[in-house]
Amino acid sequence: MTQLTKHIEAIIKERACGSETNNEVVHYIKQQMEKTSDLVDSLPFDCMTWKKEYSYVNLDGEELEIFASPFSKGVQTTGKLCSVSTIEELRVCDMENCIVLVYGDLTANPISAKDYPFYYPDEHKEINDIFESRKPKAILAFTGQASNCGLNPFPLFEDGNFEIPSAYIEESKLPLFLRHLNKSVEIEINSQRLPATSSQLVATKKGNKDDLIVVCAHMDSKDDTDGAIDNGSGTLVLLRMLELLDGILTSHTIQFVPYNSEETYHAGGELVHLEQLKDKKVSYVLNIDTPCFKNNKSQISLFNMDNHSKMIKDVVSKEKQLCIGEPWYAGDHMPFAMQGIPTLAVIVEDFNKEGVFYTHTKRDGKELLDEQIIEEVSASLVNLLLAIDNH
């Protein structure tokens, strides 16, 4: 069994942040990092896990299954149905003690978690604030294919800070529910929030100077998926890069950071790492997320790298598993890029054409992984990292 095979067997499993399996995977990664690092910090943080069971709405004696929103509060109640489909309707809707059906423009995309530190647009804040101030008994969202993952339907809310119990169901069921507007129905959302703790690992490989290069890849998964591509593959590449660099002296000190909590609403792991970095100089960041999907190359997008772009393009042109792509904004690199730090983000080429439809689903299993491609991408990114380090 190869070293990479051992990593795959230990890491590629459902590992939602704070769960027992997540903490086992953190422990395994820590053990591996200690073999090739000068120092491995384990930064604790509070988080939340979530349990769900069968949930339903009763319409005139017909019990229809619905899906509890991740981290929703649970509820069993009856209430009159009302509906909203636009922000304008939401602003004037009297929904106190009602069960609110949400569809149309309001369910085009997921609503950001309350006070999410890296992205919380004003419209999403207004939507959250209105719902919580109007005090409905529950929310039921009608959704379809998500634009940012493979879920169909997708949860409109995924937020342990949102106080209204919520669930979701496929949008094709909407006409049936609209026929029951202003009628009282029974709803049961079986969902439970559980306080937990976890750790954020930071492995340090000391260089000739203290200036940092941060190499990161989120290691947690959503519930109900093994997260092989999202982002087990990135975690495997990160580990193999650290192993391939063993014994190589670099100019910069390099941190290898398997972010824990990227797939949840609070970003606890990244926040405790950013706190650790506040008095340090970060020269470059390399974030690896969903690489190595099937036979596609891994695409490099560049932020604040104008002084290095020619050098990077020259290196990438010699690596058969790498290519340069358009900027990609949905990842752990963005807090660094928004500070003006030179940043590279790695994602599989043409991710939105096929790869996205596996993510966050049971289809994202280890059968999607190709060990040879992972090894080649790891070696290629080491070559790129060393070129940046020496530039």
Rank of each mutant, 00 (worst) to 15 (best):
A337V: 13
E326T: 03
N390F: 06
V315K: 04
M334N: 09
V382G: 04
F357K: 15
G325P: 09
T343N: 01
D364W: 08
K362P: 11
P335D: 07
A345D: 15
N390M: 05
E326V: 00
P342C: 05
D370M: 07
D332G: 05
Q339P: 00
D350F: 10
I373D: 04
E349L: 10
A337L: 04
F336E: 00
Q321P: 07
A330G: 12
L385G: 12
P327R: 07
K310V: 15
P342I: 14
C323M: 13
H333I: 01
E349S: 10
V356G: 09
F336N: 02
S380W: 09
I324C: 13
T361C: 11
Q372N: 05
D370K: 10
L322H: 11
K366G: 02
L385S: 02
V377G: 02
Q339M: 08
S309E: 07
T359M: 12
F357W: 04
K353E: 12
G331Y: 14
G331V: 01
I373S: 01
V315I: 11
I388M: 02
D314W: 03
V346T: 00
E371K: 12
Q339W: 03
E367F: 06
G331H: 12
E319F: 04
I324E: 02
L384K: 07
E371C: 06
L384S: 05
P327L: 02
Q321N: 14
Q339I: 04
K313L: 04
I388S: 01
P335Y: 02
V377K: 08
S380N: 15
F351A: 11
V382H: 12
L344Q: 04
T361G: 15
H333C: 03
V348F: 00
G340N: 12
G325F: 13
S380A: 15
E326I: 01
E319W: 05
M338D: 14
